[in-house]
Design a protein around this nucleic acid. Structure first.
Lengths: 139, 139
DNA sequence: CATCACCTAATTATTTTAGTTGTCTTAAAC
DNA sequence: GTTTAAGACAACTAAAATAATTAGGTGATG
């Protein structure tokens, strides 16, 4: 029941781009260094994001990546689905017997609801310093 | 974002025991054959369930396993937590930066809510034939 | 006292994860 | 017009997790 580094690092990339939105392209090198991640590994992750239109690439010197759309239009579900595959706790949910299928569907829909209703705009705003109030309730 | 065979088969065992509740012990052999699973593998899964008190074992001829409590008192969360570990989309949720932490917590709480509010009684009742209505809405 | 069932531990095959290595292409800047 | 920063593409690999398999017990009931 874990999300792998694909989804986690992919989200990191997209949050960085969201924070930089409107200020020109941002290179993977910058993002990799700021987050202490392998640039080559991030390249593998950004390829499917580019194919899905979630980011646009600008080649050449001083190039980099920009978001494919407004931060408010891109959800965490868009990103996770591209990098982790379908949001379902089991493969082939239809093949399961009714009792278990019912549970998997409830889980899938609960997660889907969170992912599809959390935008990059929501997430990027959580990084700006002091407003720790928002998540104080949860811990 | 998947649940492994541990959690899935563990749930299968528990649902079978729930359906058999009040009718004496049920052997792993019976459960394994009915679900076309390896008996030896199920033995590995039922050990932690027994240690957690979710099932009781009755040794000897015509022995087997019975639920450790009423089906209405055992939740899918009890079972999944024992076999899959803590319900959290990432390890070390506290170490994540605020933006992502917020998302992981929302997911965790959503899944937790489903798992802790779905009892074996709920699940076992879904196997009895025709009432496909309940999950018709979802597919 | 044989059977049937539970108990424990070691080993193995497969898959997934998390990268690494290397080469090539593009395009802006100088 | 060539340097150089940056993306594109492909193949390979080490380590860990997953999913079993195999083997050899122990205990209680009929």
């Amino acid at each position: 029941m874990k999300i792998s580094t694909k989804g986690r690092y992919g989200l990191t990339i997209m949050i960085e781009l969201a924070k930089n939105h409107g200020e020109g392209p941002m290179s993977l090198k910058t993002i990799a260094q700021a987050n202490d991640l392998s640039e080559h590994y991030l390249e593998q992750l950004i390829a499917p994001l580019r194919n899905a239109g979630l980011v646009k690439s600008i080649r050449g010197a001083y190039g980099g990546y920009v978001l494919g759309d407004e931060p408010s239009k891109i959800t965490s579900g868009d990103i996770i689905r591209v990098l982790e595959g379908p949001i379902s706790p089991v493969e082939g949910i239809e093949d399961e017997e009714p009792a278990k299928r019912e549970l998997w569907i409830r889980i899938r829909d609960a997660v889907k609801d969170v992912l599809d209703n959390t935008t990059l705009e929501d997430l990027a705003s959580h990084t700006e310093d002091g407003n720790t109030d928002a998540y104080m309730f949860y811990i």
